[in-house]
């Protein structure tokens, strides 16, 4: 092979995902599954922690539960976190009992926030959704 014909492809850094979930067991399991799929995963147990992380580290995708403690309106919290980094994708985890924000709607009014996964979910469901959202690992 001629050295000139070899093209060095740039190495893609694994996308960083912030998992915001107050249930330690759920957060541990889903974070572990995402790491197993090659993502860099950051964990936050509350909205306050998530804000600190988002103000310090660049994150490609936010996976946030709507039922965080201390938050009356999970959708509003998700919007607040989502606005912290403009290019960041968002996936919402919502329990059936989360109150819909829009009267008469079937679920929370998430607008264009991002796709939603219903709790309880399988960690593999979330991994699939994250891969599709980020187009990771991409063609190759």
């Amino acid at each position: 092979m001629n050295a000139g014909s070899v093209t060095a492809l740039p190495r893609r850094t694994p996308p960083a995902i912030l998992v915001v979930e107050s249930d330690a067991r759920v957060r541990c399991l889903v974070s572990d599954e995402l790491r197993g799929s090659g993502f860099k995963v950051l964990e936050a147990g509350s909205a306050e922690e998530a804000l600190m992380v988002l103000d310090s580290v660049r994150v490609e995708l936010l996976f946030v539960a709507l039922d965080l403690p201390g938050s009356d309106d999970g959708t509003e919290t998700a919007r607040l976190l989502g606005a912290r980094q403009k290019a960041m994708r968002i996936i919402i985890a919502s329990a059936e009992e989360d109150r819909p924000a829009a009267p008469g709607s079937d679920g929370p009014d998430l607008g264009d926030l991002g796709p939603l996964v219903r709790k309880p979910y399988h960690a593999s469901q979330v991994v699939g959704l994250v891969m599709r959202s980020l187009n990771w690992p991409g063609p190759g």
């Binding site: 330690a24 957060r27 541990c28 974070s31 572990d32 964990e43 147990g45 509350s46 922690e49």
Partner: peptide
């Protein structure tokens, strides 16, 4: 694994 508190641990 990460825990925020002893209770979470």
């Amino acid at each position: 694994h990460e825990a925020v508190s002893a209770e979470e641990a």
